[in-house]
Design a protein around this nucleic acid. Structure first.
Lengths: 154, 154
DNA sequence: TATTGTTATACTCTATAACTATA
DNA sequence: TATAGTTATAGAGTATAACAATA
């Protein structure tokens, strides 16, 4: 039995620490359930964004989920090899590549999305629906401001 | 210029994903500012917990910040080598080790804690004070339930 | 037999530099 | 010269199995 009388006042007053804890607490459950679909977190996120935004570029994908371009390339390579996505050069700007789900990718995503929603709700079952919505709203506010600080980052 | 018209509705409805995004957004700022103290996230967390809870065991430390015992051993080794913490066997139960900050560890922690609080507040400056408090309350609720599911995990 | 902690190891994730090609 | 994407590589974080010592 754990005596959880630890004083964590300072650490739990940091959003960075608290968010990391929540993330690391949910991660194992996500990994375990998603193993059935053979999808990792970043892979699932890519499928989700492509389902909702067919034809976007790798850059926008990478920016949205905070993955560096080299690491995104590796994620996409694996999804391409599995036949879950396809890509084409954009005619108007040949530097860009347009990404799309294949029919197999769409089918897998539908199943995986149901799994993801289930497990996420289980992992947050201690919150009321209103609390959960509020938590998501506040995290979104933090994340949107991160993505676009005030012009240029550096 | 980014056209942030991406539809991320589904992903941002997952607490796991949103928490991970927030964490990964704040991490680089944390790392950059803490480099001045030569402290990584887990190391800072250990110092903070030892400052508030002198004499706790490695197990309780590891549980509190979601680090596995083998990885905690590595973190502590580095802090010991730097003379920031010390440890002793507990007389009553010789399996346990009691951890304490050294005077140098306390001094470094004081400075690092001020840095951490500053950067975390900068990173969440888009929230009102009330929103920030509410976000921390909700994350705490999620994290407390994670830590102690309902008896034993497995 | 269970718990605390260690060692060794592998795997994943993240970060950076250097490069190609397009613009 | 700047941007999209790639390759290669290093480093940090995470996970697991096997072990020692104590209870």
């Amino acid at each position: 039995m754990e005596q959880d009388s630890l004083d964590q006042t300072f650490l739990l007053g940091l959003v960075g620490h608290s968010a990391r804890l929540a993330s690391s607490g949910i991660r194992p459950l996500f990994a375990q359930r998603m193993a059935g679909h053979d999808l990792r977190q970043a892979e699932f996120a890519v499928l989700s964004l492509l389902d909702a935004n067919p034809g976007i570029s790798q850059k926008r994908l990478a920016d949205a989920i905070n993955v560096s371009p080299p690491n995104m390339a590796a994620v996409l390579t694996r999804l391409l090899e599995r036949g879950l996505i396809r890509r084409e050069r954009q005619p108007s700007d040949q530097r860009m590549q347009i990404l799309l789900l294949t029919p197999a990718g769409t089918r897998l995503y539908r199943k995986a999305a149901a799994t993801a929603l289930d497990l996420d709700q289980e992992a947050t079952a201690m919150l009321t629906p209103a609390e959960r919505r509020e938590l998501l709203r506040l995290l979104k506010k933090v994340n949107e401001a991160q993505a676009a600080p005030q012009g240029q980052g550096t």
